[in-house]
Design a protein around this nucleic acid. Structure first.
Lengths: 333, 333
DNA sequence: CTGAAAGCGCTTACAG
DNA sequence: CTGAAAGCGCTTACAG
């Protein structure tokens, strides 16, 4: 707002402090490299005129924008929020800032957001999910930015990947459920790439253990509580009554739980429920929800750590980091 | 990643297309201002060498960064997510991008994030909540960026404010509850500025209607489902048993609801519950949650609309936009 | 509709 | 530890 008068610039500080712009620039970027007395004069000058560096100019000259782009499908997919939170925490310590792009649940805005990020010469692009599109892979691979694919574990990452095997999660859930004695499984799953891998992992292992092919309910949209409720009703009209529902998110699990309880079912005796993500609601629901925990914050921290190592000129090897997952066995299954 | 080879720049495109850099620049910013034949040659040249404009340089020269900063307390406060989603939607249509800053639940990082945003010469800063700190107000007011305070309605906005009166919400909830016949109210409320205004509005109106001073439970942290459960237990040990709990968030309401049902209470007959925010869970819970709806997406859209009008040189008047709120009467009260 | 050229506000190799 | 000066890659008033 307001306006008119010129914003103070480096040159103004330099003149006031009686030094060259080079010295002020050095001070701004690392106060320790200038003599103590000089530093004090510069500090006073900056305070006096309220100088705030122009990082656009700085980035242009130094080729380091101090910008990191985080591209996630959707803010409502709260499973990623811990990752973003952790990244922002790590970054804001250094005055860096996160450019947030929402690619859409179908990733339709991915391309234009990648271009928007690249055009700002971001130091790094952190993506949720792995990139399949060849043109996009080429675009990302040809640039100077560090590219971190997260929440997945591709065989051939564009640059670096930090995540876990969704297939392994599905298999582990199947082993757990089978060991618990459940025999008639129903899957309620989103149709996204990651949920699909977990689903396929579950089915493969479940059948390998001698289980019958599970009935399924695929949800095209972002999975929410309400979908869980609808899925419950659909499931109840199935000829074969499942004794276990495996959900691709805790939201779904919560919706099913609420609906099952309202229908007078006992959980897990009449119907067991397993979620995914270990959102805070999983521990807070009654009954508590058995689910799979992913250390999303660690993914965020590791992503920034990779960036720091790259900046320090270190070689990143291996280029893939598996953060694993944990079954959180609670009351619902 | 990768690296070494120089990124193509405007000059490379110009040479390849046989025009001046000025013409390429014009094309990039608005293809219609150059002759059709010229446009075609430039388009081909850009595609051939994979040119992506350097917006750092562009922003430096034009003094428009195409960057909008959104500063919110915390991603987990999902009540703001619809606002951010709407903003990102409006913005990404133009290749603009949102810089996300998380100020922390106590706003402790607000100052450094404002500086980080200003140093990138953002076109606008959109804040959740109103800014009280005088130094920060001065800093924001003296700059060229459009400043939009949201989710509140200050008497004297720094620049523009879009929100609603939290006090009015509290009063409206009190009138509703009193009309419904509830007489013994218990408040479970976060300690933030906005929740406090609602709480005070409720108490003032409630007592004006002849109600007894409500018992209270103040929650220092970010309110979550789990806090609702704890609050329920605390409430049950009170000498006077409330017939109504008014919560400062739907999360809290949900936690109390789950705990109340688990304790065998009938809702709303034994205990009524009112939330705030109208998150999707409010409609999805069993029983559904009576709450207050805020059109968060509209706040986001209006914020960007203000920005567009400012860019078009329009005068913004009035400087305060009240988006109001709605009681969502459902089953829980 | 297009071009030549100055300028946006920094950083940094080079020299001292 | 500090300075003079070139350069980062665009935009835009001015002129034609």
């Amino acid at each position: 707002m307001s306006g008119g008068e010129r914003l103070p610039k480096l040159d103004d500080v330099a003149r006031l402090a009686g030094v060259s712009t080079a010295t002020v620039s050095r001070f701004v970027n690392d106060p320790r490299v200038v003599a103590a007395a000089t530093a004090e004069r510069i500090r006073a000058a900056i305070a006096e005129i309220g100088y705030i560096p122009n990082r656009l100019a700085g980035g242009l000259a130094s080729k380091r924008s101090g910008l990191v782009a985080a591209l996630v499908p959707d803010l409502a997919l709260s499973v990623f929020n811990t990752t973003i939170d952790a990244m922002v925490d790590e970054l804001s310590a250094d005055g860096e800032i996160v450019m947030l792009g929402l690619t859409g649940i179908d990733n339709s805005r991915m391309r234009s957001l990648v271009e928007a990020a690249l055009s700002r010469r971001v130091d790094a692009i952190i993506l949720t999910g792995i990139v399949e599109d060849e043109a996009l892979r080429a675009l990302l691979g040809a640039r100077h930015a560090t590219v971190v694919e997260t929440w997945g574990l591709p065989d051939d990452p564009i640059d670096v990947a930090i995540g876990f095997s969704h297939t392994a999660v599905g298999r582990e859930v199947a082993r757990f459920a089978h060991a618990r004695g459940y025999r008639s499984a129903h899957l309620v799953s989103a149709t996204g790439a990651r949920a699909t891998e977990r689903r396929e992992g579950f089915i493969a292992e479940w059948q390998a253990l001698g289980g019958d092919a599970p009935s399924e309910d695929l949800i095209e949209a972002q999975t929410r509580f309400g979908h869980g409720r609808a899925a419950f009703r659909a499931m109840r009209s199935l000829p074969r009554k499942p004794d276990l529902v495996v959900c691709s998110s805790d939201w779904l699990a919560q919706g099913i739980l609420v609906e099952a309880l309202a229908a007078g079912l006992r959980v897990p005796d009449d119907l067991a429920v397993i979620g995914f993500g270990n959102l805070s609601i999983a521990a807070d629901m009654r009954p508590t929800i058995t689910t799979v925990d992913i250390d999303g914050a660690r993914i965020g921290r590791e992503a920034i750590a990779v960036l720091r190592r790259r900046e320090a000129g270190e070689e990143i090897n291996p280029r893939t980091i598996d953060v694993g997952f944990r079954m959180m066995v609670r009351e619902s299954a």
